[in-house]
Design a protein around this nucleic acid. Structure first.
Lengths: 230, 230
DNA sequence: GCAAAAGTGTTGCCACTACACCCATGG
DNA sequence: CCATGGGTGTAGTGGCAACACTTTTGC
């Protein structure tokens, strides 16, 4: 009973676009590839799908192997499928993008994998079609951040308004007025203002806030849509 | 030199969600599956990817084999990847959704393939995870139609305002005010009003319009974004 | 005491919604 | 002549952008 016998089987790669945020800049985690072809060049972190594992699981495995993190934001992006995208053998690549709090990653694993963080927009040239993957991931992030509260995945649990604003400015590649920004975010009613202040080497401290998933659920039930305009 | 030797190769299916529009209703083109497993059940049109062909090409091949159409709107949707989604063998499915003018399809091919059109929202139960694929395609269509001028792909080259409006109402599953609708579409300045009228068995004829891709390009250059609010 | 960053309100405009009547035609 | 569907304008409102000064604190 060999149904499907006559069809081709293909190599399936899973590549991860890993975003972080630090010091007003969106960051990308890249590795120096340690196997042929293109050994030594910069590349996204990736691996091959296994027969007995879903691609979602594979993406999580790959992400964890580089960052040590589990249960972080990870979403399928696109399947890159040109015939000649990998010179060795026909391989399709299903990409996933991840948003992580950059403070959480495991330094040791990063070193072991010859990885490092780059400013998005100041990335080295990447192998194969990985530049295109990054571009598409950024487009998706813009859309996603505009319509869903995913920005907080890139920040520590407690953050200040100026931090949140410069995150959105980095994602959307624009500047915003801080009064209007606070009004907009405030009107969403999904944050909790804490009594603590954060003093960033800096003069006057800024109040800390937390994202409250329950408040967000409440807003959804009420029919209010999350939206942050670029 | 057998790089990548130790990795698994997987079956890669390509499934197409084919949308049409007729008589105020969004339609879906489905086939009665003619091979095991699940032979005789309703299913999306699909096939297997070939080693020497991109998935985009495969999707086009599959679409053409059922509809006779080439060069129509066809966009990758999502890669469905659960381990057990196909009971016969581990198979991932890369889905594509297509928007076609329902008048253009080839009746003969439809018959040969045991296919027929269903109202979206009145579809039979589909095999495997195909119901989920349809749901995701509809979500994507809502987004796409809101932000890009893809609605016209579902209409004949010449169409009336009431037709266009009921298309958007079908996609968004809402009702709209016709005066506001015309104002919104008009302000986009991407249509050409023709001197002809279309008399639909009906009393007073309605003016015909055409989508003008050049005007749309012009608008993009001017920085005006296409947007039709649900 | 001064430099650097945080915080705070008001006004004007534009875009969107709501809404009701007349017109043309075929039967 | 009447039923059906196509076409048209206005007024009110709410949300968004533009905009500048005061406060706190570390040095």
């Amino acid at each position: 009973m060999t149904l499907y016998k006559e069809y081709d089987r293909l190599l399936v790669a899973v590549d991860c676009i890993i975003f972080g945020f630090h010091g007003d800049k969106l960051k990308l985690l890249l590795i120096k590839r340690d196997f042929e072809p293109e050994k030594g060049k910069w590349s996204l972190m990736g691996g091959f799908a296994k027969r007995e594992e879903s691609l979602d699981d594979a993406a999580n495995r790959i992400l964890t192997s580089l960052t040590g993190l589990k249960d972080v934001f990870l979403e399928q992006l696109y399947c890159f499928n040109s015939v000649d995208r990998d010179p060795v053998e026909r391989t399709i690549s299903v990409t996933y993008y991840s948003l992580i709090n950059i403070e959480d990653h495991d330094e040791e694993l990063i070193k072991q994998n010859d990885a490092s963080w780059f400013d998005l927009g100041d990335t080295p040239n990447l192998i194969f079609d990985h530049n295109e993957m990054v571009e598409r991931a950024h487009q998706r992030l813009k859309y996603k951040a505009e319509h869903y509260p995913v920005g907080f995945e890139l920040l520590p649990p407690k953050f200040t308004m100026p931090e949140l604003q410069s995150l959105y400015e980095a994602i959307f590649e624009t500047e915003m007025d801080k009064r209007n920004f606070i009004k907009r975010i405030g009107s969403l009613d999904i944050l909790v203002k804490l009594d603590e202040k954060k003093r960033t080497s800096g003069k006057k401290g800024a109040f800390l806030y937390q994202f409250d998933p329950e408040k967000y659920q409440q807003q959804l039930k009420t029919g209010n849509k999350f939206q942050v305009k670029p």
